[in-house]
Structure formats: structure tokens, C-alpha cells
């Protein structure tokens, strides 16, 4: 015999079941409990609503900040690309020769005679 069979042998007899059936099904709490409960429910629901409102507002603000940041970055990036591609302007980098010229000491070159070899 299993343990569960043992448990099954312990079912209530009909007269015991009748005793259980006759137990009262309801009990009236104090009148004060209703006022207390109503207040607690109202307070809790109100607090939850405020919390939900706050979290929703926080989420909306964060989403708006992200959108503004992304839009700003995109505009800045696009403007930078447009400037780099402009054909009218000279290249931003100087040639090696120009750099060499600017770095060289200023020399006053005198006209010299040219020797022509034949």
C-alpha cells in the first residue's frame, strides 16, 4: 500500500462531511474595516497612478532628449559632409611646395647673369 492510499483512507465520514457543510460560510467584519479598506485602496491606487504618470513622463522626456540628440548629430554630420564636397573652395590642405615656401627664410634674390654652354 502506498502512502497516498493511506491518505485516501482518511476521507471524512458522511456525518463529518455534514459537520463541515454546516460551518458558516460568511463572517461580517467590523464596520470600521470598510472605511479603512476604502481609504487604503484609494490611497494605493492614487499613488500607483501618480507613479505610473511619473514613469510615463520620464520615459517621454528621455525619448524626446534622445530624438533631439540624434537629430542634432545628423544635421551636424550632413553639414560637415556638404562643406567637404564643395567644388568652389580650394582644398583645405596645403601642397608640400607651399608649406616649404612658407617655412623657408626670406631671401632677396638678385638678378644674376645666365651662362649658356654650347
Amino acid at each position: 500500500m502506498t502512502k497516498n492510499d493511506d491518505y485516501r483512507d482518511d476521507e471524512w465520514a458522511p456525518e463529518e462531511e455534514a459537520m463541515f457543510a454546516s460551518l458558516p460560510r460568511e463572517r461580517i467584519p467590523s464596520a470600521e474595516l470598510k472605511a479603512r479598506t476604502t481609504e487604503a485602496v484609494r490611497h494605493h491606487v492614487g499613488a500607483t497612478t501618480i507613479e505610473r504618470g511619473l514613469s510615463r513622463n520620464t520615459f517621454i522626456l528621455a525619448a524626446a532628449a534622445c530624438l533631439i540628440f540624434i537629430a542634432g548629430a545628423a544635421i551636424g554630420f550632413a553639414a560637415a559632409r556638404r562643406m567637404a564636397r564643395s567644388p568652389d573652395e580650394p582644398p583645405a590642405t596645403a601642397s608640400n611646395r607651399a608649406v616649404a615656401r612658407s617655412d623657408a627664410p626670406i631671401l632677396i634674390l638678385q638678378p644674376e647673369g645666365h651662362v649658356v654652354w654650347y
Binding site: R25, I28, P29, K34
Partner: peptide
């Protein structure tokens, strides 16, 4: 609507039975 009046009816209807269980 968070209607107090509706909650009141719900409370009166179901509290005695649930209160017996808790008790």
C-alpha cells in the same frame, strides 16, 4: 473610473465570504 460607489457594492457583496476564509 476608480468609482468608490462601485467598489463599495463589490466590497459588501464579497467581503463576508472572503473574510471568513482569512479568519
Amino acid at each position: 473610473d476608480r468609482a468608490d460607489a462601485a467598489f463599495s457594492v463589490l466590497y459588501d457583496r464579497h467581503t463576508p465570504r472572503a473574510f471568513q476564509t482569512a479568519w
